Simulated assay, not measured.
Amino acid sequence: MVQSALADLFGISMSLGTVNPLRIEASDAVANCVDKAKLDVQRSNVVGADETSFNQGYIDGGNPNNF
Rank of each mutant, 00 (worst) to 15 (best):
M1C: 00
Q3P: 00
Q3G: 10
A5H: 04
L6R: 05
A7C: 01
A7F: 02
D8S: 04
L9A: 00
S13T: 06
S13A: 10
S13L: 05
M14D: 01
S15H: 04
L16D: 06
G17V: 00
G17P: 00
T18E: 13
T18K: 13
T18N: 12
V19P: 12
V19E: 09
N20M: 12
N20E: 14
N20Y: 10
P21L: 09
P21S: 09
R23A: 13
I24T: 12
I24H: 09
E25Q: 07
S27I: 01
D28S: 11
A29C: 05
A29N: 07
A29K: 13
N32M: 07
N32A: 15
C33E: 15
V34M: 05
D35Q: 15
K36L: 11
K36F: 04
K36S: 08
A37P: 05
A37G: 08
K38V: 05
K38L: 05
K38F: 04
D40R: 14
Q42S: 13
R43H: 13
R43Q: 14
S44G: 15
V46N: 08
V47M: 07
V47F: 07
G48W: 00
G48Y: 01
E51V: 10
E51G: 07
E51Q: 01
T52G: 14
T52Y: 08
S53L: 09
S53T: 10
F54C: 13
F54K: 14
F54S: 13
N55M: 03
N55R: 07
Q56K: 03
Q56N: 01
Y58F: 12
I59W: 06
I59Q: 04
D60L: 03
D60Q: 04
D60G: 03
G61F: 03
G61A: 09
G62N: 08
G62Q: 08
G62C: 05
N65H: 13
N65P: 04
N65L: 12
N66G: 05
